[in-house]
């Protein structure tokens, strides 16, 4: 038998023997898995959305004045859930609930883009990671410019409002 034939034969024998040992070991152990999966695996593999760079703004009372004075020129977006938005939101804000799994719908992007606002300010839950920052980055990555997020999110805004 030539050298290469012998190498191929050895490789096949080793692969077959290893496979047999693996199957027997799997059958013998408690943590073994069925040879054929009983139901399809539920796999979640997100396709990453393009993300852009965004600025942070501090939730000072000055910011609130600025936002309200520039109403019409500044679009304020609340990234919280619909129920959170119903219980409290900044005057004039629109609600775009941020979802870590589902990307923002194209029609929502079009709505933001057609608002003619010169600036966009997003606030979220202020957690780590902050849903406001994540939504702002997603919007920036999808072509919305002059966009910033409120550092500290809704809680910081409430505190700033209370401090006035």
């Amino acid at each position: 038998m030539t050298g290469w034939k012998r190498i191929v034969r050895d490789a096949i024998v080793v692969a077959a023997a290893s496979a047999a040992v693996g199957i027997l070991f799997n059958l013998a152990r408690e943590e073994g898995i069925p040879l054929v999966a009983e139901s399809p695996y539920e796999i979640f593999v997100p396709c990453p959305e393009p993300l852009g760079e965004v600025d942070a703004v501090l939730p000072t009372s000055g910011l609130l004045d600025q936002v309200e004075i520039r109403a019409g020129r500044t679009l304020v977006i609340d990234a919280g859930s619909s129920s959170d938005f119903s219980s409290w939101h900044l005057r004039g804000a629109i609600n775009i609930p941020f979802d870590y799994i589902e990307p923002v719908a194209d029609q929502v992007i079009r709505r933001v883009a057609s608002s003619r606002a010169r600036h966009v300010v997003v606030y979220g839950d202020g957690a780590d990671p902050d849903s406001g920052r994540e939504l702002a980055r997603e919007l920036a990555g999808r072509g919305i410019s002059n966009i910033a997020f409120v550092e500290g999110g809704v809680q910081a805004l409430k505190s700033a409002r209370g401090a006035e």
Binding site: A37, Y41, V45
Partner: peptide, 25 residues
């Protein structure tokens, strides 16, 4: 399974057999 290349019928068999071939090699 995450690679979504193999049919369901051979995913577990591959997961059981491949590491032992790696060990032997």
């Amino acid at each position: 399974a995450t690679y979504d290349i193999l049919p369901l019928a051979v995913i577990n068999l591959m997961a059981i057999v491949l590491p032992w071939i790696e060990l032997a090699a």
